[in-house]
Design a protein around this nucleic acid. Sequence first.
DNA 1: ATGTGC
Length: 476
Amino acid sequence: MDFSKLQQRGSVEWRLPATGRMRVPGVILASRDLVAAMDDKVLEQIANVAGLPGIVAAAYAMPDAHWGYGFPIGGVAAFDAADGGVVSAGGVGFDISCGVRTLHTGLKRADLEGAKLRLADLLYARIPAGLGSVGGLRLSAGGMEAMLMGGARWAVGEGYGAIADLTHIEDSGCAAGADPGAVSDQAKRRQRDEMGTLGSGNHYLELQVVAELFDQAAAHDYGLAVDDVVVSIHCGSRGLGHQIGTDYLREMVLAAPAAGILLPDRELACAPLASALGRRYLGAMRAAINCALANRQILTQLTRDAFAEVFPGSALTLLYDVSHNTCKEETHRVDGLSRRLFVHRKGATRAFGPGHPELPAGYRRAGQPVLIGGSMGTASYILAGRAGEGERAFGSACHGAGWAMSRHEATRRWQGRAVIDELAGRGILIRSPSSRGVAEEAPLAYKDVGAVVDAANLAGLAVKVARLAPLVCVKG
DNA sequence: ATGTGC
């Protein structure tokens, strides 16, 4: 990273002043070490985002930021529709509404002694994982429409999970304003057989143990104690979201000149929020959010069924479910004024603070659970949102460890088998259909997740609550 | 991320 362009403001804030076509400054919220490890391309992408029409306050990068498609991954940017603001398909990302949900199992570490291996094999047998994997469900045209409108609420109605789950999901499990008519037939076709599947890449289902608590009061409110076993599911909207991203990116590139939008990078393709194209994309993207929420809801039921085979009578309850690839219409205070903004979070987690009316009653005191997936074999974290007065980055935080290198570089350095054996030696069981996928996801291919959450904590984005250590990981 | 690729 070229520090010469950055102005340091405190230990974890770096400002890229607005120059040239930038309308607002860029702000990186990370430690010096994390910034030093970031590619210069991140700076270039932040500057490009800062030049988009209608952007408000600043283009932000979270501590885990790295360069992505158009926008950096770990990027946050908000736009005002009344000020010519835009929505960008690249600013949401291809895996629309990719996110994490964490479930309490009601079990302690000691309960797993002797059952871990069986549970690993059972979860791997029950959870469809890998590229092109299909689920046990085939959606009819009507079923597809209902799923895209209803999200996790639809899934509960179909028998996956309980109504009580819904209060612990962002948007109560259903994004409003979804428009299945704005989703291409091809996107729907790709999704027809893929409900209740994990996918590939960095997606996983992980059995974890609470290894350390940092904030007793918040941990209490979240129902977490040391040695508790939890399950975390990381996945998104599969082929449907990917196809929507592909479809609209192409359309936005073609429509940009007529909309008077000059693109410094075609990957930044966007459309005015006030345009028909912008509205159609929002409708399709919200349908993809519902697809991801329904998908994680189905996977939750498959997980419960697997647990019931090993631990009859076990009850898995939902701690929280939050996405990290979205564009959401939200109210934020900017310079003392309350404004409706369209907040793009790409590889960034919503992190609403204490008292926010959208949080379930039990979490109003602590703030929203912020679920941070680490890399395979390292730690994951649960943080509590701190957004409020003086908030930065529109109530957002980091989403994971963030890549330290390309997938190609990772496969050059490691072999899947060796990674699995090394982790097995440390008592961490990996189950995956893809040896190459495991190599790409080797722990050292990622940044140090502990350093990332420490930076998020220092920057005031979210407060550390718990560290989770992996026990079993089903990888896509 | 992805029926892994213009």
